[in-house]
Design a protein around this nucleic acid. Sequence first.
DNA 1: TATTGTTATACTCTATAACTATA
DNA 2: TATAGTTATAGAGTATAACAATA
Lengths: 164, 164
Amino acid sequence: MTDIDRPTPSDRRTRQRPSKSGKMALGPLPELVGYNLRKAQVAVFQSFQNAVSPHDMTPGQFGVLIMIKENEGLSQSDLGSAVGIDRSTMVAVIDRLESRGLVIRAPSPNDRRSYALRLSPEGEKLLDELIPRIQAHDKAMVKDLSAEEQAQLIDFLRRISRAG
Amino acid sequence: MTDIDRPTPSDRRTRQRPSKSGKMALGPLPELVGYNLRKAQVAVFQSFQNAVSPHDMTPGQFGVLIMIKENEGLSQSDLGSAVGIDRSTMVAVIDRLESRGLVIRAPSPNDRRSYALRLSPEGEKLLDELIPRIQAHDKAMVKDLSAEEQAQLIDFLRRISRAG
DNA sequence: TATTGTTATACTCTATAACTATA
DNA sequence: TATAGTTATAGAGTATAACAATA
């Protein structure tokens, strides 16, 4: 799991996704929750890219930034286990965010082996701008669902995650 | 998107995924449909691995096999656009399935540029075995939802995909 | 000219193993 | 001894560009 960035295969801002599976036979796939889950997620992730454009941000990166903002001073390892990725993988993730000037690797006051991660002022600023846009985008994704249905959907999804 | 195989980062059959995000503050994430969608999908994909074990099959590969079974003789390009990936990417996907003896690149009768893909007898056999297991696994994932809720969930997800 | 499969190239995600500096 | 960050290595997903064979 965990793909910090999953839906960003290419950065060359050139998304095409016609999926002409129109005349294709799909067998048992359409009846599988997993199949529909994946398709919905793909749709959401793709439009996410547009929603945050031109900021080149992925859902995974956004999640990491939120996590750092909400838990200032946490270590890379702690962040990794929270997000579900190995600490060795987290290195490059933070490398990118740091090189973009969004995250700071501050020295940890108590443990000289680890960093205390925090957002830079630019990171804070970006997040302040992105949060409302991403929330709006999220609402737009479920605009065809009534308020009650949206709540049900989230409830269903959480129950699935818990069941895991 | 498309990730044919997304949730299979490592093949070293050693999945750990505690996600001790227990005491972590998550800010606005839990309210986002996209966030819950991703978490649910991760849960499903991971247990999928167990469900098909020891067959080393990913949801994406399973989808490709189904597509070939249901549309015998289709070309790599057609398969690629159906699944949503580039034909250059499809090469390696089919390479793997072919090297595992599951898929055959038969010459296309009409077009000498392309292949007519089809399942090998082993591919057919594997699919016959996997389909019921995967269907059972899928049902198990939503065992906490009533039949009506399951139907609603799939309906919601399809509406989101359409909205894209 | 356009299309199919392919290869070369380039990112990203992800993991394991091993190393360094610290605890 | 154990842990945090790192690097080396490896494998998969994904794309674009360009090329040969074929349409």
